[in-house]
């Protein structure tokens, strides 16, 4: 590789820019001062204690967990159906249907949230965690489909044929061959949908009827300066959590490619 000192330092600077607010999280989360500013005042775990004792935060976290687990499960299952159908079969209406499924990727989220809200209100459906789940699944399914499509695509069709040829039925082939080979893709899809759902704000805010949900709760708390340090503590925890999940997802994806005997050709998306 040719050396490019200028480009290299630019890239490092760019990374610093990307990470700059995140780096502040652990710094001030452990800083022994109500005032978020330099110079630092000393080390403390108070903010983490405050975070842990916050009753509303606990409810919000529990709700977010319920939502994210449901959303990740539902959209991964819907993604499996759609990805398998689009990779393996030709059928009428395939392009418009796949287009509709992927549409939320190119539609402002606010519009999806409002359209759904208008319909729910006119049908007198009470807003709840359930309506949040319904809405978020629309947002995360395209990601699940994208990840799973590449997982199904890297599957050699002759593996399925070989299994059928050796006496297995369509269903046992799915169970013995396809499922184990796309399992890393399924795990990656689940983790990524989980992460997106956990962070999602607009739908949680508008379709949740004020139920405490983590992202909405965080958004509200940052307006109170006194609450900021404990929010920074929470942010630190969440960032660590995201990085661990991402690491697992990336590991799964690579293992999936290695298993199917393919070559690594890039990261997420």
């Amino acid at each position: 590789m040719k050396k490019a000192p200028f480009l290299r330092s630019y890239t490092l600077f760019y990374l610093l820019f990307l990470y700059s607010p995140i780096i502040l999280l652990p710094i001030f989360a452990f800083n022994d001062s109500k005032v978020v500013a330099f110079p630092l005042a000393g080390f403390t775990l108070d903010w983490f204690r405050e975070m842990l004792s916050d009753q509303n935060l606990r409810i919000a976290a529990k709700n977010s967990l319920i939502i994210a687990l449901s959303v990740a499960s539902v959209s991964t299952i819907l993604g499996i159906f759609a990805a398998r159908a689009s990779v393996r079969y030709r059928f009428p209406g395939k392009a418009p249907l796949m287009g509709l499924i992927m549409l939320p990727l190119v539609l402002p989220e606010m519009i999806i949230a409002m359209a759904l809200l208008v319909v729910l209100l006119s049908l007198n459906v009470p807003l709840s965690l359930f309506t949040v789940i319904i809405g978020q699944v629309l947002i995360t399914t395209p990601f699940a489909v994208a990840i799973l499509t590449s997982a199904f695509q890297s599957l050699d069709k002759s593996l399925e044929e070989a299994s059928m040829d050796l006496g297995e039925t369509a269903w046992s082939t799915f169970r013995l061959i396809i499922l184990p080979l796309v399992m890393p893709g399924i795990m990656a899809s689940f983790l990524i949908c989980f992460t997106i759902s956990f962070d999602e704000f607009i739908i949680s805010n508008f379709l949740g009827s004020g139920q405490p949900i983590l992202s909405v709760y965080i958004f509200g708390q940052f307006r109170f300066p006194a609450k900021v340090p404990s929010m920074l503590a929470l942010g630190t925890v969440l960032v660590c959590f995201s990085i661990i999940l991402l690491g697992i997802a990336e590991y799964m994806r690579r293992r999936g490619i290695a298993k199917a005997g393919g070559k690594d050709s890039g990261g997420f998306l």
Binding site: A85, S86, R88, R90, F91, P92
Partner: peptide, 8 residues
Amino acid sequence: GLKLISPT
């Protein structure tokens, strides 16, 4: 194909 994609 249609049957498969129908839930989504």
